[in-house]
């Protein structure tokens, strides 16, 4: 083969140039291995994160579950306490109801020898006029409080007006009482107001 055959006589038209995507060049094996290694490491990292995440969620779940269980038992325990307190409240309320019932009060008044004064006297503020006659109450005027005649099966507690210890009121008694007031030996409870004023009523 001569060289002339090898060289075309007519100069070939140069191919039209245009943009084309860059083809990936074959990479060397080392580069490919490195690339695979990076991808693998990245995937392992994601997998690790997922696993850690799952473990974290599982642990969190355990913790929440433990807290919930504790809370459930706490609630249950508190409910039991509430029931016990409600029972105690009921017992105390029934004692209070008994003590304040008219039957108990009538018997207490009777035992103290109290009399009803049927002759009320009124003072008319606008005129200063006294209405009614101030007649002292007397036992002879059938004013002695009659003993209770009305049944009450719910009467579980009774007052003992002659027993000072049972009627002692829970109001702080200061040492600095008015000494000029003669102390009573009749068994009635002496009530001394605190210096801060009249205590609020514990009832509603």
């Amino acid at each position: 083969m001569s060289i002339s055959r090898a060289i075309p006589l007519v100069r070939p038209i140069a191919p039209r140039r245009h943009l084309r995507p860059v083809e990936s060049l074959p990479r060397p094996k080392a580069v490919r291995q490195a690339r695979v290694s990076v991808i693998t490491q990245s995937r392992i990292s994601v997998a690790k994160r997922i696993v850690y995440g799952l473990i974290a969620i599982w642990i969190l779940n355990l913790i929440v579950s433990a807290f919930c269980n504790t809370a459930i038992y706490s609630i249950s325990s508190l409910k039991d306490q509430t029931k016990e307190l409600a029972t105690k409240t009921q017992i105390l309320q029934q004692q209070v109801d008994s003590l304040r019932s008219p039957q108990n009060l009538a018997n207490s008044a009777k035992s103290l020898g109290m009399v009803v004064n049927a002759n009320s006297v009124f003072l008319k503020i606008s005129t200063g006029k006294v209405l009614g006659a101030a007649i002292p109450a007397s036992a002879s005027d059938s004013g002695v409080v009659s003993a209770n005649l009305i049944a009450n099966a719910a009467l579980i507690s009774k007052s003992n007006p002659t027993n000072t210890s049972s009627t002692k009121m829970n109001i702080p008694v200061t040492e600095k009482t008015n000494q000029s007031v003669k102390k009573s030996n009749s068994g009635y409870t002496e009530v001394v107001l605190p210096s801060s004023g009249i205590p609020a009523s514990p009832t509603h």
Partner: peptide
């Protein structure tokens, strides 16, 4: 039922 005033 509880009737604290009894027969009142």
């Amino acid at each position: 039922r509880h009737y604290s005033y009894g027969a009142v």
